[in-house]
Design a binder for these strands. Structure first.
Lengths: 104, 104
DNA sequence: ACGACACATAAGCACATACTTATGCGATTC
DNA sequence: GAATCGCATAAGTATGTGCTTATGTGTCGT
């Protein structure tokens, strides 16, 4: 199940941090480790989970692997969220901000 | 951390099923168990996790406890998602559907 | 008042998961 | 072509998680 992979991937705080770093700009696995106190295999395993969830995608460049945010995963979350639109609060500031952003 | 509780809560397929059932209409814990092959304590524990994540809220009615979707949790997910709007694909069908839904 | 009911909580157990160290595999450098 | 580098994978281990079987707490019916 796709949404299962996504929510399971995002359930780990380390993986959310990795995703946020990639959202700020794509980079390779070694660069991602900077300032994170995480071993190389651990990073590799986390990236594999994020990749399986389609939250992240890889782009091989020689012996480096550049990682970037995969829009597909975010779209799937948006799709999941849309199912419950009937319950979205009408006046919460966060939602108003979201609507404004989406309205472009 | 709020978003941690939310993603961790949604990482479990049984809890997502419970949430979906509640989205279709609020009901008490016993009613939720119908057709789910889950013990009473297990249901109670799942509901406690969903409650802690603000995805669900309770409304005590005598010896029954009516559960319903809590819009706060959904708003927090929307807020999290909004942070990455720069990566939302412009032309993916799912997003177009979402936009249409949100536009009411 | 007593039992039945709806639900929560406690404790224990089986399994999943996130880490570690060790090793493998290509691509690059010398 | 040998060593090094960037990354993936394997295997083992400690902790987390979801379940179970009691048991507790408050409410209702009789």
């Amino acid at each position: 199940m796709m949404e299962h992979d996504i929510f399971r991937a995002l359930a780990d705080p380390t993986r959310r941090t990795i995703f946020e770093k990639l959202a700020a700009g794509s980079m390779n696995a070694s660069a991602l480790r900077q300032g994170m106190d995480i071993s190389q295999p651990a990073m590799s395993q986390h990236l594999a989970v994020l990749r399986a969830a389609r939250l992240v995608r890889e782009q091989k460049e020689g012996r480096f692997v550049n990682y970037e945010v995969d829009p597909d995963g975010l779209a799937l979350i948006a799709q999941w969220l849309a199912k419950y639109r009937a319950y979205w609060p009408a006046r919460i500031d966060a939602l108003k901000l979201l609507l404004k952003d989406m309205d472009q």
